[in-house]
Design a protein around this nucleic acid. Structure first.
Lengths: 143, 143
DNA sequence: AGATGTAGTGGGTAGTTGTGGATAAATGTG
DNA sequence: CACATTTATCCACAACTACCCACTACATCT
């Protein structure tokens, strides 16, 4: 299971080292694409399979339902890990997520998300406030 | 059953020995994550499984559906116990809980909590006062 | 009380990881 | 076709981590 967060840097060749803990699960090729909230998403080949099937089976009546797979699929890229577990992030994705030097790689059980470090901090702070309420309600109920 | 509290120290390599009494139940890998009230929570792999399934079934809004797993999963870390039952506490968790050298490890039946020793003292004093009230309310309910 | 065993703490060493750079192949351009 | 710029492969360093073992304190047992 992919969990945890790691702060890594994109070097001057646009390379990003994926956390060593994840490598076993990731294999030697991954799919990287746009995520929601201006982050990037990294799927294993297997998870991508599942994901793209889901996207293909969306009801096509709504216009959003058509645009979502277009954006996600068209943005996707298969990238290989080099011998040291680094991937190359294409410019258009790097720009989309506003990645600078310092980024955060988060494990989300079946996929990774890549955030610009500052953006992540911001997002996390906001999200944690809302979540504490939810969790504190759930706590006594058995979690 | 994980019960009791132990005061342990984090050595200069960020290692924390988990109480020997708990080791059998914990196995060789645990999940450590943020808790409420600036403490850390340690789950066994099994308990984490249960926990994450519950999270999946929460009735929540769209934006929460994204932020909740992000924050919860990203905050968590799978850490292995070394041969002497110690775990390595990642920096971001150590900072979150304000852990210094001396910490308190509490058993809470299905999980552990890790507190900075001073914070725990403070919290305990406050909580014990409140408990009298709570108990007096719960008493008639059969606890 | 002394011996024995276990637990908590501390440290040394070897291996791994993250980062940066060097060199070779590939691509595009004038 | 030659050149410049980009892309890929390889290697080097420093920092960190994992693994191993040693020491001390406390508890237990004889």
């Amino acid at each position: 299971m992919l969990i945890g967060q790691y702060e890594h840097t994109i070097d001057n060749k646009k390379r990003l080292a994926l956390p060593a803990k994840f490598r076993g699960e990731l294999g030697d090729k991954v799919i990287i694409t746009k995520g929601i909230d201006s982050c990037l998403v990294v799927y294993t080949q297997k998870e991508w399979q599942i994901m793209s099937e889901k996207l293909g089976n969306l009801p096509i009546s709504q216009s959003e339902a058509r645009s979502l797979p277009r954006v996600i699929l068209a943005s996707a890229m298969e990238v290989a890990l080099d011998k040291l577990g680094r991937i190359l992030i294409p410019d258009y994705l790097k720009n989309y997520a506003g990645l600078k030097k310092s980024v955060v790689v988060c494990g989300l059980s079946n996929r990774l998300e890549i955030w610009d470090a500052e953006k992540w901090e911001e997002y996390r702070k906001k999200a944690e406030k809302g979540i504490e309420e939810i969790v504190s309600k759930l706590g006594p109920l058995g979690i």
